[in-house]
Structure formats: C-alpha cells, structure tokens
Design a binder for these strands. Sequence first.
DNA 1: CAATATTTTTAGACACATCTAAGTTTATAA
DNA 2: TTATAAACTTAGATGTGTCTAAAAATATTG
Lengths: 224, 224
Amino acid sequence: MLVRSSIDRSSRALEDYLMAIYRLEELFGEARTTVLTNELSVKPATISKMISKLAAKNLIIWEPYKGVRLSEKGRAIAEKIVRRHRIAEYFLVNILNMDSVKAHRYAHMMEHLPEEFFDKLYEFLGKPSICPHGNPIPGATPSTDVLKAKPLIKFSIGLTIRIVRILCTAGGEIIADIYKLGIDIGKRVKIVSFSERGIVLEIDEKRILVEYRYTLAIYGVPVE
Amino acid sequence: MLVRSSIDRSSRALEDYLMAIYRLEELFGEARTTVLTNELSVKPATISKMISKLAAKNLIIWEPYKGVRLSEKGRAIAEKIVRRHRIAEYFLVNILNMDSVKAHRYAHMMEHLPEEFFDKLYEFLGKPSICPHGNPIPGATPSTDVLKAKPLIKFSIGLTIRIVRILCTAGGEIIADIYKLGIDIGKRVKIVSFSERGIVLEIDEKRILVEYRYTLAIYGVPVE
DNA sequence: CAATATTTTTAGACACATCTAAGTTTATAA
DNA sequence: TTATAAACTTAGATGTGTCTAAAAATATTG
C-alpha cells in the first residue's frame, strides 16, 4: 500500500473524534451528539454517521439517541493522543512562551504527529507530569494533588479550594472563559453558595458566579 | 463557514504538491509527472489531475506532456512552506537530537502547522539562517557561501570543493543515500573525473563514483 | 397526557484526492 | 523512419468526511 509522507489523512478524523469523546466523557460522563457538534465544528448528521463507524470498529459504545462512551480499545487510543496533546501544550507554553489558550489550539494541530516525535520532545522537556492546565500527562506518575482533585461542584459550602487542574475541550473556549474569570492553577477559591445557574465563589476578595458548565471543568483540592 | 480546529485538510495536498514542484524545479529546473510520482507517492493519473487543478488556480505553469514550473503566486506559497520545513528540521536536529534524515521526514509532517508556531519556534532557536542540510531558511540573510554554492556538476576536474548544502526531496531517500556515501556539510571533495554514470570524487583519501542524480543535489564552493 | 420543541438519526448528494483502465503524445531504437 | 516503449493525460469509479432535508425518538410544556 502506498503511504503519503505527510500525516495520514484517514486516522486524523478518527483521532479527533476519539479525543472529543474522551474529553466530554471526562466532563459529563458521556458524549452527546449535540455537544460533539460544538467540539468538532461539524453538523449533527456528520456526528451520527461517524459515531456509527466508530461503533462498528468497536472503539466506542453507542446507545442510539442516548450518547456514546469510549470502549477499552478506544480509550487506549484516546489516551495516546491526550499524552501527545499535553506534551505539546507544555512545550508551547514553557518553551515557546505562548499563552495557554492559544497553546491549546496549536497543540490540537500537533497531536497527530508521530509517537517518536513526542518521545524525543518529552525527553527534552524533562518529563513533566502535568500540562499547563494542570492535567496529568499519561505515562508520568501523577502527583497526589492531581489524583485527589475533584470538580468544584463536589465540594461543600464554606470550603476553600486550591485550583489544581482545568479540563479542556477542543475549541478552548471553556478554558479561555475560565481564565477570564480570574481562575487559574494554584489560586484559592471559597465555595460561597450554589445558585440555580452556578456556584458563587469568593476569589481575590471578590464574589463571582461561575456557571455549572464551567465548574464541572475546574478541579481542586481542599486547603487544610 | 465552519472551520475544523485541526489542520485544514484541503490546503494540505495543495501545499504538498507545491513543495514537491519547488524541490524538483530547484534540482532539475522543472517538475515532470513521473518524478512527482516518486515525490508524492501517488499514481501518475493523480498527479495529472492535481496539476490541472493547480494550473487552473494559477499556482503553476503547465505545458502538457512537458512539465510544470511554479508561478510567482505558487512560488510565494512554496517558499513559506520551505521556511517552515527548514525551521522544523533545525529544531528536530539541534534541539531534539534526531538524525537529519529522520528529521527531514518529520519536518514534512510539521510543515503544515500555522505560521505563528514557526515564528515563535524560530525566535526560540535564535533565528538560524540555514537548515541542518545547509539550505537557506527563507527570510534570513543567507551567508555568502550559500549564495555562491553550485552543484558539483558545475565544477571542473581537479578542483577541491567544500560541501555547503544538500538539496532535499520529499521522501528523503536522496539525502540518506548521499550521507551514506560519506558526503556531509563541511567536508571537502576533489573532482577527479566525469564518467558516464556520474562524477568520480576523492573524499577522505578514497575515490567514489557519485551518480549524476545525486551530484545535482550536492552544492559546494571551491576551496581557495 | 397531548402538543410542541429539541435532539438524534437516516437517506441521499457533494467535494476531494485517490485509483484503474484506456487513450494520446513524446522518446527511443531497430 | 517506422515500430515500440515510455511518459503523460483523460475518463470514470471508489472511499472518506462533509452537507442538507426529512424522518424518528426523546424531552418539555401547557
């Protein structure tokens, strides 16, 4: 079979879909068609068609009209891509001095480069264990903080939480919005109350309302 | 219009074709269908079809059954990609310690990443003026050596030449073969004679025959 | 709980780069 | 210089990922 020397076209879409599903599963426990629509900038009909292909390849588990989750096989592939993505992000932020939102977008373009590139890059970077958003790089030993961290929504009123990681979606809009609110890795926030729309947080002596769709992505640990 | 966050598919093929034509033009003065076939690992019919598309877009000048050359417009695009390719190669060899043949292959996969990535990377690398194969990085000020260098085939018998640059093709087979012969940037070779098949060179006190298709790619300057 | 709105899927068309097969042009050799 | 070989192009088919339009399932609301 002939092999183009550029990045293989066929595996690209597949990897993008698995990545998107991985992220949504991380956030919501499952991936719905409409949400994938935003993640992949593609019409619902396209998502449906691709979903049935991925399901036929046993990469995902599909309950029609309900949603999809990754199979073991699919998750294994997705985790490889997540690793590449986070190594790329680390490089873009810490070596090339890109802001972390832009880095996220560019990392998405780099994540289809071959494994060996990332092995070399990872070596050069000194084998970091987390990406700039605090998310663990698969393969590295995660810190206890990262392991213990839970989404803000899981903590009770009154607790002060140190932000440890922020989950990312494909477009990067969610992380951009979150950083705009003044939330960042290492910052401390206090859970003030739960309203209908979101969580009221105290951060830098100010109170802000953070919508639930964001608080699902913000992981932290209680401050002793 | 919807925009995928991954690298745009449509521009990929176009960029690959322009790059291949650029390289063959550099080597042979024009690009023929059969040769493009090797460069792009694609059947002749495909080359023909793509050539007529590129010609319709005024990116190349096409004389059917004769060959193609880049138009001004096409050359401008190709030079951007060449720049990206050579910056990537420099990074892969000098920072990630890849051997230069493999770097060439990987650079080919990276060369479709966006301009800004390469601007940042170029900055980080200290704005080098040549790639690891000695080829100038467009935009940088080239050294006089690079400007004066000519292919070995242009020099007369008896001259000693210092190798300055080695032109590359897509697959990287040519550079790999050349390096295997013991030829490398900075080395001195003496033009012994011209045979039917190639040039007899004296290198490291040994005489070797280098086929003409290789000598076209090997650029050097006479040693005073 | 019935009507309506939203989400999801199916069906079918399209663009794109590729292929094979066949025809045309150019080059080579007897 | 004609016959044969090689290079190149055209025509038409295929696979993949996308789209629109319409149908089906699920969720929401009066």
